[in-house]
Structures are given as structure tokens and as C-alpha cells.
Design a protein around this nucleic acid. Structure first.
Lengths: 226, 226
DNA sequence: ACAAAAGTGTTGTAGATACACCCATGT
DNA sequence: ACATGGGTGTATCTACAACACTTTTGT
């Protein structure tokens, strides 16, 4: 890397959700100073000639091997003192991963990356806690007015899981009946014929997000809002 | 500036509003290649050790002399081909200016900066049109759920002007009675005793945005939404 | 008196909230 | 039969949209 001038990096706040464990985020253990051995968001320097999204995907692949299902730019953190070494500006992204892509592939740099539940976070390097909080806030806001929740679930999911996902992201309880009514009224979910039984209790239907219908309704000027 | 590596710049989309002329934005004429003589957003390279906001303020002062009333980060544009010279990543900001700070001070670099009405825009350099459109969209969205409209008006303003401001930003007509009812119901505007007469017609009251009250209501968990 | 702009109130309607019981299965 | 989780309907309330006339001034 260059010695003088401003460097540009990207960092990714990657959320995953599992019905049993709730929301988690992906962290890596740093191999070098500063904060060697500490936990940090996956990320790294942007290479000359590559786009920001390419940099994020590349770093995520190198460091963790996870496959993103959704990626969106979050905010650019530019405080010249945010990195003790020198002036490094970081463009933060936030991403979502489906449970079936949770396995961390120990390919390249992946030897030490790990999912952490949000209530059991370790201390984070740099200003990464601030970035993480910013991302949580964005996720909360975004899930209420765009149907990105589905990107955190398997393609076929149970309504109850969707409901729990919303509750854990929004941090409040939701009336089951009203939620279902509202969500189904958008007409962007397909109910499948399959039923799932686990343990006692009535079997539940599987649902599927129908992106075509969503785009269609969007063109017709409707507005998703929970 | 350095010759290799990625450079970092900031660009600002600065909106101003005048009741008679509607929304305008601030552009500068480029002195150097590329796009020499063309119109562009004010901005420039970030200096080592300065924050992004400092860079924006500095460049705006150098190039146009206007005083911002509101500043917010917009998005970071990182396509390596967005600048024909080399890889330059730009953090775009959007800002709002009050009519009483409209005068462009011909101090330093200001010799060629100018307000343009949105329907009379010249061709813009680089990807600046894209950035501008992004900013317009953000302004539209933001003005509907945060009370930033006032930052575009004099501290004391007429209700009619506020109404026209909203209509020109949202690009649709608004029912005068409902708008007033809703806006006043938030309890964040103070009606002053002064009345203003211009020409024929009933004199209008002056209003003032009360930030204290807004912060108070915000803490109480209310939500501004037009 | 007339033209121009400011100010104001009511009613209907759609969407949100609150709320409790039945259904299908496993043990 | 009972425990467990899934599925559903209704009444009330609140917030928004639609809509037209009166008031105050200048000319």
C-alpha cells in the first residue's frame, strides 16, 4: 500500500439470521497490527481499478468465503483519526446472507472468521462498533419499508420465522394476526402447497417471496410498509 | 496530487430555493481539463488529515463562497471509470442554503459559479448529472419524513412559501388545507404576531420553525411525516 | 365593487390496532 | 386427553383525502 496520501478501504457489516439463534453478524480476527488478534468487520483496501462493490465482494470471499444475498452501501467514514496508522477512509456496506450460505469456507484467509450473535459481541477494532450500530439502524429502518427481510431467510420459509425475524430486528413484539394480514395483502408472497411439521402443533405452510409480483406492484406505484 | 493510487474527492449538490424562482442548484465552471469550461458540481480532493465534511466546506468556500445551512452525506461513487484521468472515488454530499445566503462571494475561486434552476441545467461534467439526480431523489424522500424544508427558507417564512416549496420538491400539488392542518398539528411551528402584506390579498402570518419543540417531540417518539 | 391571496371545518373512508378462539398434529 | 404451535375474523378508532366558502386587503 502507499505510504502517504489517503487510503481507501471498504468494510462490510454482514447480517445472518437463523430461526433458533436470531440475528448474527460476521466478524474476522485480525492477523496484523493494529488490533492484532482483535475482532473486526471484514474488509480491506480498495485496489486501483476496481469498483467498491467488487472490493467488498473480493474481501468477503478472501476473508470469510460467505456468499452475499444482498449488498447495499451504508455510509462513508472519513474521520482522519479513525485509524491509528494514517488517514484511511472507509466505505461501509451492509449485506445479508441466507442461512443456507452460512458455512464459512476456510479457503484463503478464512481461518479466523466467525458468526456472532448480536448480544454476544466481542470488542471491535477501530470505529467498527459505530459502523455496526449504524448498520443495525439502517436494517431496522429498511426492513420496514422494503421487503429485504426475505433475503435473510431460506427461499421457502415459514410465516412464523418471518414474523420472528421482524420482531428481532425491530426489537418489539408484533401482533401475529395483523402482521400476517398486512404482509399477505401486499400480494408478494406465494403460499406453497407443502406443509412442514416439526414436533407437536399444526403443520405450517411454506411461503415464497415472489419478486416478479413485487416489481410489478412497485411499478404500479404501491408502497411496501410494515 | 499523487499520480498513482486511488484519489479521494468530495462533491456537493447544493440546493437553494427562492419563492419566485423555485429550486436551484449551485454549479461551478471548470478551469482545467478534463471538461475545461464545462459546468460541474463544486468539489475537489480531500486533503490528508481533514475530514470529509471539512473538505466539502473548504471547497465550497473556495469555489463559491456560499454558507451552508444543512449538510448531509449522500453516497459514495466509486466506479473506477467515472473520471477519465484515473481512479477517483468521490463522496457526494447534499446541502441546503437559505435565500439570504444566496450571494456568491467572488473571493477566491468564485469567479465562475452560478445558481441554475433545475429545469435549465447545462450539461454536466463527469457523472455529476447522476449524482444530482440521486440528490434530488434523496431530497424528495427526506423532506417527507424530516423537517428539513425549513432550511431552505428564511428563518421567518410564509406558510404559502412552505407549501410551494413542498410542491416543487415533491413535484405534485398538495391540498392547502390538509397541508396546513398536518404541519401545524406537529406543533413545531410558531406563528408570529407579524403579518406581511404584498400587493392585494389578505396579509399573511409569519411562521418560524421551533427546533426545541421538534427535538422534544422527537425524544417523545413522534414521527414527522408529510 | 372587484380581484387577489389567506385562512378555515366537515365528512367519508381506508387502514391500523386491539383482541380470543378454533384447528391440526405429536405424545 | 392434553400440550403445542398454526391459523383466522371482527369491532373500534384514527388518520388521511376530498372538498368550497369566508376574510382581509389593494385597486
Amino acid at each position: 500500500m502507499e505510504k502517504a496520501g489517503i487510503s481507501l478501504s471498504v468494510d462490510a457489516v454482514v447480517f445472518g439470521y437463523q430461526p433458533e439463534q436470531g440475528l448474527s453478524i460476521l466478524l474476522i480476527r485480525r492477523k496484523y497490527e493494529p488490533f492484532k488478534g482483535g475482532w473486526a468487520l471484514p474488509g480491506g483496501f480498495v485496489l486501483e481499478g476496481e469498483s467498491l462493490e467488487e472490493a467488498v465482494s473480493r474481501e468477503l470471499k478472501e476473508e470469510t468465503g460467505v456468499q452475499l444475498n444482498y449488498l447495499e452501501q451504508l455510509y462513508t467514514f472519513g474521520d482522519p483519526k479513525r485509524d491509528p496508522r494514517r488517514h484511511i477512509v472507509s466505505v461501509a456496506y451492509f449485506g445479508l446472507v441466507r442461512p443456507d450460505h452460512f458455512e464459512i469456507k476456510a479457503d484463503t484467509d478464512a481461518e479466523d472468521s466467525q458468526w456472532f450473535q448480536l448480544d454476544e459481541l466481542p470488542k471491535l477494532a477501530f470505529d467498527h462498533l459505530k459502523i455496526l450500530e449504524y448498520a443495525r439502524e439502517r436494517l431496522r429502518a429498511k426492513i420496514s419499508y422494503e421487503p429485504i427481510g426475505f433475503e435473510l431467510l431460506e427461499p421457502k420459509f415459514l410465516f412464523g420465522d418471518l414474523e420472528n425475524l421482524y420482531m428481532s430486528i425491530l426489537g418489539r413484539s408484533i401482533d401475529r394476526r395483523n402482521f400476517r394480514k398486512k404482509m399477505l395483502a401486499f400480494g408478494i408472497l406465494d403460499e406453497l402447497d407443502q406443509k412442514v411439521k416439526n414436533g407437536p402443533g399444526r403443520p405450517a405452510s411454506l411461503f415464497q417471496f415472489n419478486q416478479e409480483k413485487y416489481f410489478q406492484h412497485q411499478r404500479d406505484g404501491f408502497h411496501f410498509e410494515i
